[in-house]
Design a protein around this nucleic acid. Structure first.
Lengths: 137, 137
DNA sequence: ATACTTAAATAGAATTATTCTAATTTTAAT
DNA sequence: ATTAAAATTAGAATAATTCTATTTAAGTAT
């Protein structure tokens, strides 16, 4: 949790708890998931704190915000390049290795991306996982 | 607008107006955008109708739902394979040609996608467009 | 250690997008 | 014209997020 120091953000207990909860977490939790997980230890913690913290952790590059479901933000402490495979039924989100390559040069040559400062890419693959396929048939 | 007939959905005026508004529309409108555009002609139209209609058009493959911004659904009548370039400042969404190839075989070989019935992929590239870059500096 | 400055946390209201419910109306088939 | 099923409506309900004003605490300087 030395990462926090580098950002210049203050080391508050709530913030450390959130960061700690996220560390190594592969569940792609929503703000509410995080709130529920941590609030037992911090019964006074407000929802706004969770949102504010996630926002600043994101701004400082410690986590990524995922746009996978419209209607709900999800957060990922794994900031390495990787993509997501989502089951539209059970909503489980699986990490995919970064074996997908973007032909950025090809796209740039199309001229559309000229002048665009690229910040990040999200590749979401939607489907039905084996378990749900089995269940529904 | 013969597409509606094929789906078996009933041809209501509201539905046709929505479909008509979407036809050829490259603006990736939200439900509210669509409501605002159409309600002058149908002052009695309810928001629920917009949502219901979009849902059934989606279910019948006439439009796609985009998950680009968390907090807001967007809809695209262009159901061909293509991706999106989003300016995180002005929120404009640009279409990208499908020159991005997924190495599906490579991924499948990783075993993770085994048994997954793939429904669709969304590739969202986030950045700052030339105009906003200029404005902010 | 103490005081100070500023960032962060808090409670709760407000906002936004979406979904739900129950009643009414319309479509399309007979 | 009748009818059954599907769609529309109004408005309430829900869910997620953001905002506002106030209080508290972190980190720095004294």
């Amino acid at each position: 949790m030395e990462k926090l120091k580098k950002t210049g953000l203050k080391q508050t207990p709530q913030r450390m708890a959130i960061l700690n909860h996220l560390d190594g977490n592969k569940s792609h939790p929503s703000a509410e998931d995080i709130y529920r997980a941590i609030s037992p230890k911090f019964p006074s913690m407000s929802f706004a704190t969770v949102y504010n913290t996630l926002e600043s952790l994101k701004d400082h590059g410690l986590i990524k915000e995922l746009t996978i479901e419209s209607g709900k933000k999800r957060f990922d402490p794994d900031i390495s390049e990787h993509h997501h495979l989502i089951c539209v039924e059970c909503k489980k989100i699986f990490d995919l290795p970064h074996e997908i390559r973007l032909h950025q040069k090809a796209m740039a040559s199309a001229g559309i991306m000229k002048g665009f400062k690229i910040l990040g890419t999200q590749i979401n693959i939607y489907g039905v996982c084996p378990e749900c396929s089995r269940a529904s048939h």
